[in-house]
């Protein structure tokens, strides 16, 4: 039987410190073999996850039935072109986009972003196959999709790796807009003229640069402010 020297309360024999004032309990004559079990279990449990199986099944059924009915319509009624492939492609894309939301929520975000990029690329490839024109796909669609996916991965990395605030989010967004617009114009000009010519993206770049520089200034001043607050707090 121990008492807290500060609070004067009797402490349950398993307590190694007073829960009220954190003073350690020191009792050299305590016999560990005589101590009863603790009044509270030591195991913690996570909050039970709600299964979203029903929603996943509903989504899959709706998408599969849409694809199936369109295929049948294409074969039996409106059979001039292979239009149903576009709808099947869209359904497949939606299903892949929804994987982290309803089907497998533990999928790492980087993998799901990569899968989304692959799905988008595959859909564009499908269009190029159906329309029988593949130059735009290889010279325009693939580079843009690859650039966009890489940027999304980088954006996600930054958002998860560093502390997030409204300003940092805005900063990352504007950097990505600037990079994406420049990349887009480079790809388009190579596709159209065979050489790199930057016109409109320079305007976007300039505006973004102004915003980026001001955001960085705010951020650095914020840090300055934080350090002053840290040193002079009372």
């Amino acid at each position: 039987m121990s008492y807290c020297v500060h609070c004067g309360v009797e402490l349950e024999e398993n307590l190694k410190q007073c829960p009220l004032c954190n003073t350690p309990v020191y009792d050299p004559s305590k016999r560990p073999d005589l101590i009863k079990a603790a009044p509270f279990p030591s195991e913690k449990a996570p909050v039970e996850k709600v299964k979203r199986k029903d929603l996943a099944i509903l989504l899959s059924v709706v998408l599969i039935s849409t694809s199936a009915t369109c295929t049948l319509l294409n074969i039996l009624v409106f059979n001039q072109s292979l239009w149903s492939l576009f709808i099947i492609g869209v359904c497949a894309c939606i299903w892949i986009f929804m994987i982290p939301v309803v089907i497998y929520s533990r999928l790492p975000i980087y993998v799901s972003v990569l899968l989304d990029g692959i799905a988008l690329g595959s859909y564009l490839f499908l269009i190029s196959l159906v329309t029988n024109q593949d130059r735009w796909f290889f010279e325009l669609a693939i580079p843009i999709v690859v650039l966009f996916t890489i940027q999304m991965e980088v954006f996600t990395y930054f958002m998860r790796r560093f502390p997030v605030s409204f300003v940092t989010t805005a900063l990352y967004t504007f950097i990505h807009i600037a990079v994406f617009c420049v990349g887009l114009e480079i790809f388009i000009s190579i596709f159209l003229h065979g050489s790199i010519r930057l016109i409109w993206s320079t305007i976007v770049l300039t505006i973004c640069m102004i915003i980026i520089i001001s955001l960085i200034t705010i951020l650095s001043r914020q840090r300055l402010r934080d350090s002053i607050r840290k040193r002079l707090h009372f």
Binding site: C4, C7, G8, V9, E10, L11, E12, L15, C18, P19, L20, C21, P39, F40
Partner: peptide
């Protein structure tokens, strides 16, 4: 909690704590 239980102890009540 500390202020609460210390007040009870001051008033002469024997308190046993579990946590």
């Amino acid at each position: 909690e500390r202020y609460f239980f210390r007040k009870l102890v001051q008033d002469g009540i024997h308190v046993k704590i579990e946590s």
